[in-house]
Amino acid sequence: MADEGHSHRRSGRLIELLTNVDRRIIFLVIALAVALPLLFPLNLPVRPSREATAYFEALEALDPGDVIIFSFDYEPDTMAELDPMSLATLRHAFRKDLRVIALTNYPGGPGIALRNLEQAATEYGKQPGTDYVFLGYNPDYSATMLRMGESIQATFPTDHSQTPTAEIPLLQEANSYADIPLLVTVTASALAEYWIIWAGGKYGQKIITGNTAIQAVLIYPYYQTGQLAGFLGGLKGAAEYEKLLELPGTGILGMDAQSMAHLLIVLFILLGNVGFFLQRRAARNGGAN
């Protein structure tokens, strides 16, 4: 009888331990799981997915001198996940001597766009106005996307630094989707879908997109139908693209940390479920007694 009571107490303590881990312990373990692999990389292998390969090939297929549109459709909250994609794409474009018309559909986007554009342009010795132009933010993304199909100069009378777009050499050559073989949008929202519907659906613009991992799940149908030529999903997508480019950056660097964080979250979920089942069994046995 005493043994049975002792066993019950021990089982109760185990259930308590499994189902009520202090949240501060969880926070500490997650912090270590993210920080340690960044300091001591495990170098887990990164294998490019077919979507990332298609994204890479869409840019690779362009000829030097071709113009692309690059839309920075995100704000600083998601820059840890999306900046690696933006920077890698700009490096790819400038490495291939493509010219870039950049814009943003978010009021908080210009700072991000400028930082990425300036960094990539400096690395490859590109000049504003001839090699790239930043149009800035325009209110109302739907009207912007549709109007750019008619005239980019009319949609953006001046660029971000208030230079009239009619005087910018790059925009004299490329003034609508008809002059632009590829549009890239890096986004944390449904804007990728809107680009596909308005620029792709109405004007037949070829589009590739970089998305946060949570958003990527929603755009698979567009990739399957061919409305999207390729896409990057989350930091893993950025890492895959960096691997294809052979330009390792923060995408690849973040993969070990992300792997460990995901693994830990899964372990915590399993731990909680083991506790839950033990609890249920104990309740059933208690009821039977």
Binding site: F27, I30, A261, I265, F268, G272
Partner: peptide, 15 residues
């Protein structure tokens, strides 16, 4: 990331 870890541990149960 921290809140997702804590919340999924507490709420994600195979009921």
């Amino acid at each position: 990331a921290f809140y997702v870890a804590s919340a999924s541990y507490r709420a994600f149960r195979a009921r």
